[in-house]
Simulated assay, not measured.
Amino acid sequence: MADSKYQQIKSHILQRIETGRWQEGDAVPSENQLAGEFGVSRMTARRALQELAEQGVLQRTQGAATCVAPLKSQSSMLQIRNIADEIRERERHHRAQVIELAEIQADNALAAHFALPVGSKLYSSLICHWQDDEPLQLEQRFVNPALAPDYLKQDFSALTPHEYLCTAAPLTEAEHRVEALLADPLAIQYLHLQAGMPCLRLHRTTWSRDGVVSHALLTHPGEKYQLGGHLTFVPSERINRR
């Protein structure tokens, strides 16, 4: 499946940043320049620049050139929390129980997630993350072997899949969807839940500049997990001054 034009523009910009051709603070081509180079509308070029700005890769200021954002800003905006770090920050002990590592064939749903033909090879892992003496997260993950060829060779009792993939295929994008559901057979078995108990499942798909890296289902006992975040809003008087 060919990338859309705006995705091609994003990949073009990310490739130049990752290779060091464009450094922190460097101006990137304007909407008009990108539109001409890629043969697209200015609106398409604007969408690509805006999405990279929202991810913290670029900085856009009205009336000024769009520039490569400081690296500190990029890493914080693109960061996905590692379950082992979260547990250690609570001064608790993390332990990973590796249940399964396997090579599988993509069914219709997985093939759609990875934009690959049905039956394509994927890697699969099933890992239960423990906090002290309690199971806290069941991680079922599917990985593109073309982007992480040594995935099945890793010792995931010593490092998490997240930590490995951040090195093997540095992440540029992520998509999350949260689902409330009742415990399924895997959650009952490995999270020590009773049938009918509530769970929260985070569906997470991650990309590098070369394509989809992984799709993960992260299941938590409902009573032991909560979603949260911190947003900073710009006061209206600051907006009016621009």
Rank of each mutant, 00 (worst) to 15 (best):
E179I: 03
L78N: 15
I188N: 01
I9Q: 04
R242Q: 15
E86Y: 08
S120R: 04
H220V: 01
Q7I: 15
H162L: 13
A27Q: 07
D3T: 11
Q226K: 15
K5W: 03
N32I: 02
A112P: 00
H230F: 14
K10W: 13
E100W: 05
L122K: 05
L147M: 04
L171E: 12
P149F: 03
L34D: 00
G63N: 09
P161D: 04
H203D: 08
I87W: 07
F142E: 09
F38C: 04
R47L: 14
Q55T: 14
T219D: 00
S30K: 03
A69R: 12
K10P: 06
A35C: 03
D150Q: 05
M197F: 00
Y190G: 04
T160D: 01
A45H: 10
P161T: 02
Q226M: 08
I80Q: 14
V40P: 10
R209Y: 01
L101N: 08
Q137K: 08
K224I: 00
H192F: 09
R92S: 13
L181F: 00
Q15T: 13
D184N: 02
G39P: 05
A146F: 03
L71V: 10
P149Y: 01
D133Q: 08
A102I: 09
P185R: 01
I17V: 15
I80Y: 13
G25R: 11
A158S: 07
V178S: 03
H192K: 05
V213H: 04
S208K: 09
R204T: 10
A158H: 12
H162R: 12
Q194S: 11
E51Y: 10
V234N: 15
G119R: 09
Q15C: 13
R204Y: 01
V143G: 04
S236D: 14
A183M: 05
L159I: 13
Q97Y: 01
Q131D: 07
D26K: 06
D184R: 00
A48T: 08
H129E: 10
G39M: 02
V57R: 10
S214R: 08
S30I: 10
S214T: 06
Q194Y: 05
V57L: 14
T172E: 07
K224C: 00
I99M: 07
L71G: 04
S41K: 04
R81E: 14
A158L: 07
F114Q: 01
H113I: 14
A64H: 12
V213P: 11
L202N: 01
G56H: 07
A69E: 03
L71Y: 12
N32E: 09
T206Q: 14
C166M: 13
D107E: 10
E91F: 10
H129M: 06
E89Q: 15
G196V: 07
A96S: 13
S73Q: 15
N144R: 11
V143W: 02
R204Q: 11
F38D: 00
L34T: 04
A53G: 11
G39L: 02
D132G: 12
Y123H: 11
S73D: 15
P235A: 13
T66K: 04
L202Q: 00
P221L: 07
I99L: 11
S157Y: 03
H203M: 13
E163I: 05
S125R: 05
